[in-house]
Computed example of a mutant assay.
Amino acid sequence: MIAIIDYGAGNIQSVYKALRHIGCECFITNKKDEILASDGAILPGVGSFGDTVDNMEKLGIREAVKEFIASGKPFLGICLGLQLLFPASEESPEADGLNIFAGSIRKIPKKDGLKIPHMGWNSIEINSSSRLFKGIERNPYVYFVHSYFLNAYERDIVAAQTEYGVMIDAAVERDNVFATQFHPEKSGETGLKILRNFAAIVEG
């Protein structure tokens, strides 16, 4: 059973519907005990880095997520859920992220007439050894909605990259922790395959 973590915002229903579409047992929760008891967990993300950190603190979810990750059970962050795995973001310098990985979250620079936020389909170049992208073509198109991007300091965690005026680390992966800057639940068959891969990892 996969817990979809609800901190009061985020693309919760779309993720839930996508998982149900692929036959995955899942539920939405903001309760620490239910999160920790689940076999896998997903942290979706839409909204402000700082507001999300505040909401997670108020609900007691912040420490639950860190405890869940430390347990070794599979965890997937989506969009803001990826950014929250890092120490901080330029969007909300005063807010402390989960500090699971080392890296910087910065504003996508305005140049070459590119629109910010980055919204739409982009191809990504994936790491062939990635478990999250198992069985997926090397340069699939996936759907992005974001204004801030990751530069991971530990390059071995980067599972996919894309370019939008700057090189963007579009997915990370290490041990039981997976995360994507793009939205698998909005990325058609490729996104559903990614979610199936995560579900298979949860099932062991």
Rank of each mutant, 00 (worst) to 15 (best):
I42A: 08
I42E: 09
I42H: 09
L43A: 12
L43I: 12
P44F: 00
P44S: 02
P44K: 06
P44V: 03
G47C: 14
G47T: 07
G47R: 11
S48E: 03
S48M: 04
F49T: 09
F49G: 07
F49R: 03
F49S: 08
G50A: 14
D51H: 14
D51S: 15
D51N: 15
D51L: 13
T52F: 10
T52A: 15
V53H: 01
V53T: 11
V53S: 04
D54G: 09
N55T: 04
N55L: 10
N55D: 10
M56K: 04
M56S: 05
K58R: 14
K58V: 10
K58H: 10
L59M: 14
G60W: 00
G60I: 01
I61S: 06
I61K: 00
I61V: 11
R62S: 12
R62T: 10
R62G: 10
R62K: 15
R62N: 07
E63V: 01
E63T: 11
E63C: 03
A64Q: 12
A64E: 13
A64W: 10
V65P: 06
V65G: 00
V65E: 01
V65R: 02
K66Y: 13
K66I: 14
K66M: 15
K66V: 13
E67V: 05
E67Y: 04
E67W: 02
E67D: 13
E67N: 10
E67P: 14
F68Y: 13
F68G: 01
I69M: 06
I69E: 09
I69F: 06
I69N: 04
A70F: 07
A70M: 09
A70S: 15
S71D: 08
S71V: 05
G72N: 02
G72D: 08
G72M: 04
K73R: 06
K73P: 07
P74V: 03
P74D: 02
F75Y: 15
L76T: 04
L76D: 08
G77P: 07
G77H: 03
I78D: 11
I78E: 10
I78C: 07
I78P: 04
